[in-house]
Design a binder for these strands. Structure first.
Lengths: 330, 330
DNA sequence: TTGATTTACGCAAACGATTGCGGTAAATTT
DNA sequence: AAATTTACCGCAATCGTTTGCGTAAATCAA
């Protein structure tokens, strides 16, 4: 079946295309009678404006591009859910592409976005993307980019991220409050700034406010490694009484070890992590964690995008605040 | 900065737009010398074809629409990841919208898809969508729809889904093999056909091949309910020795109860579930499960879509086979 | 040398919508 | 009754590409 177009409506109503177009969008030039007729026919013929023709004419696509390392990720999908909600409210749709932490894919995705003339893009950098030239190209095209979570260092970009340092400090505070004597602190890929920030903030805070507490630091790249690291350190003579997991991935490894060794939480070992909350809720007792809400971050990112779209540039780094969620593991 | 267009290239090269267009796509009519010149300039000026103009002209958008109940869902995101991969390979991009299990949203999403003239739609029905009229509208527009996971009953649609009955039977087989005497079988929302199918297949199989095994069936709507149900039944005089969780959600509830009560798996109670594997891998020992791969399903769905796009209709219901993954909980 | 092909390119009409600029009849004002 | 305003509406250009068709020049066959 052929799609209904303005032309078709115009023909059937013996009106010009421009009149039909204006009638449909309630232009004051058009009489009420005509408007009604047009609307009636448009409805009965199920007229849907051709988004491509509109974009071609108006040069604005009403589509946002989103780049995430992986869609299948607990953090990103709540982020996506948030901007999707907001987008819908504002008449935008989302085009989501995953980089799989691969710079080539990232490049390709950006290209697709450019070709589709997206109104803006939300981007989470691939783990090891350092060349931001591609993103410059977006600016050249006047396509605003809001970076989230994994963001570039340069201040000339608009970025939103978790308050990584705050997260780590809140965790440290609670660990101190627990009266921990020996803690095992597990962090992620040391090449990522998120790991660096969290670790540095944590370490500084601990050294300053609890110098007598003995902390062991380790970087792990996966759940399995985290599990192994936990077991390794546990087998030493000096056992630790508290473990801090920087991410869900690490927490998962830790909890597997804890279950395997049938360790009592929080009696024998206290556990605290940074998470969006899903994984911590899987265990009994619920794991206490510092909340980093992808959802909140998404909302914030959207606000930034809108600001960027309307006004000029909002070159700033905004962070979503964190809070401690009591679980029962501390 | 103004975008590079064919017109711009044509002007600079003193050629016609059509020649430039043909040169860019390696049309035999154009001389090699000209092609080279055009390509060179196009590259240096960073020419990116305007997808909207192309779509307007060719009436094909190279975009697929995807409707899922929730992006933030372990099953759907692996499905999405799969079709995203395939789409990229085939030069398509994805437009993902979530229905939040709300029929109105679903309707709206379809509308956006129509307006954007997507090449096809992958749809997972909202839990309680029974009116498929909207989807008919897509067919009217010659937009193929491939339903996945939660699919309509009518045979005139193209659908892919998990082999629900098989899953349940495989689970039952393993339960029987374990020599279970009393089993607690927890299912989801009884209004969903997925719950019905799994339950029915499971029950029939058990009654036929292990009539002496005592099975208790219950439907729960959430993790919390599953947890409560588990605890309730455990407190009875006749304890069960095996528990079957139809979904991840239910498994989560069960495992929380198990942890809380410090029950030994598999010694005191065997656990088996149907899952894509992530949740089962979170526990120690790993939970044995019947695998339903969203990823596989995505691949299959894509094949169906392509077939639909090329040939005529492929009105069939394909299912992804299931297999048992040994964890250590049985 | 002449007629028939090839080669290599340009013209112009779409695709569907938006919008500035007029234009004409009716209504209003003077 | 003439002049002016108002209300409604149409014309046509435009966004950037694609593509059928036409045609000059170059090549070929005889």
């Amino acid at each position: 079946m052929t799609n209904t177009t303005l032309k078709l409506l115009a023909q059937q109503l013996q009106l010009s295309i421009s009149t039909v177009s204006r009638a449909l969008k309630d232009h004051p030039d058009i009489s009420t009678a005509t408007k009604e007729k047009v609307h009636a026919l448009a409805n009965s013929l199920d007229y849907e404006p051709n988004a491509y023709a509109i974009q071609l004419r108006t040069q604005s696509s009403k589509i946002f591009g989103v780049i995430v390392p992986a869609i299948a990720n607990l953090f990103y999908d709540s982020f996506i859910a948030a901007i999707e909600e907001e987008s819908r409210k504002n008449g935008y749709a989302l085009m989501i592409l995953q980089s799989s932490n691969n710079t080539d894919n990232e490049l390709n995705n950006l290209k697709i976005f450019r070709q589709n003339r997206v109104s803006g893009v939300f981007a989470c950098l691939s783990a090891h993307t350092h060349n931001l030239e591609v993103y410059e190209k977006m600016s050249d095209r006047a396509i605003p980019v809001v970076f989230f979570d994994i963001v570039p260092k340069d201040n000339k970009y608009t970025k939103v991220r978790m308050a990584d340092e705050r997260c780590a400090i809140i965790a440290a505070e609670n660990i101190i409050q627990r009266g921990a004597k020996r803690v095992l602190a597990l962090f992620g890929d040391p090449g990522l700034s998120i790991s660096q920030k969290r670790k540095q903030a944590f370490q500084q805070f601990m050294e300053k406010y609890a110098p007598k507490t003995h902390c062991t630091y380790e970087n792990t790249y996966s759940s399995l490694e985290a599990e192994a690291a936990f077991k390794k350190h546990l087998s030493k003579t000096q056992k630790f009484d508290t473990v801090f997991a920087m991410t869900d991935e690490i927490l998962i490894g830790v909890m597997k070890a804890i279950q395997a060794l049938n360790i009592k939480v929080p009696k024998e070992i206290g556990v605290i992590s940074i998470s969006n909350g899903f994984i911590p809720s899987l265990y009994h007792p619920n794991i206490s964690y510092v909340e980093t809400s992808g959802y909140e971050l998404g909302k914030l990112a959207f606000v930034q995008m809108l600001a960027n779209l309307k006004g000029g540039k909002t070159l700033s780094e905004l962070t979503v605040d964190a809070r401690f969620i009591e679980g029962g593991s501390m």
